[in-house]
Amino acid sequence: MPGQLARSGGPGDTRALPYLLIGPALFAMVVMLGWPVVSAVVISLQQLDLAQFFSGETVWVGFDNYREILTDSFFWTVTARTVVFTVVNVLLTMAVGLGVALLLGRVGRPLRLTLSAVLVVVWAIPQITATVVFQWLFDQQFGVVNHVLTSLGGDFRDHSWFSSGLSTFAIITLIVVWQAVPFVALSLYAAMTAIPAELREAVAADGAGPWHAYWAITWPAIKSMVMVLTFLSVIWDFKAFTQIYAVRGGGPDRSTITLSLYAYIEGIGKNHYGVAAAASVVMVLLLLGLLAAYLRLMVRSLDEDMTR
């Protein structure tokens, strides 16, 4: 590859170069990922239960799996719930993440190092462990939170944080946001480090206020990163599974079942892999539907970069 780069030769080479460069990535996405995706779509049109899984038999059922999901009124309750959950979590994650990133750029060096090390650790903790720790901090009988709140004067003895869907969702959101902020904050901070020092100095020399400086320098530098992080957060929170399932298995009384849990319970839990595949196809389509406008915006914003 470097050889290709080095040759500044004829126009033929230059034309082929970008395709050579994207070749491996394209192969990975189209073949290595495309194949299982296509096969998932194919499975979604089949009845693939344990029996077929073991016998290798193929049973086509057309759109039955989709019909089963789309005609279930609970599915639509769950979809609406998942959208709200996603919006709340993404907004919180991005707001806190941006705040932390800006802070990282302004605190002293030792604090910056400590804070980023803490963030990396938080990010690296396995989701299931994070969930267990929080579950336990908020435990009804043995939790530190109840203990501390009670000793601060409230009556939180034997308070259950998981007795209602809303309260359970609040704890889940706390876990999700706590673990998602580090990625956002560190990525944004990394993007900010790409701002040339001269530019900062120039704006500072103009005597611009912090807001002006932010809009003039920082925002343009991190804008495309903010967009991609928001995009990723939407995808991840929409599909969040581990934390929600581990906290209360979708309880109390099924009130925290989101789409990914629904797909798991109806598909894997019942050993209906066809239904599971159909559910994930529906999920991806919903996600792409929600993100279509945003996606177009992101691709378009790249052309600004090119002409800059």
Partner: peptide, 23 residues
């Protein structure tokens, strides 16, 4: 019966019933 395993998949409806009755 093969269908029973799905009942034990969380959220187990029997558990939900118990909490509801006790509350």
């Amino acid at each position: 019966t093969p269908g029973w395993a799905a009942v034990e998949t969380a959220p187990n409806p029997i558990k939900d019933m118990m909490t509801k009755v006790l509350t």
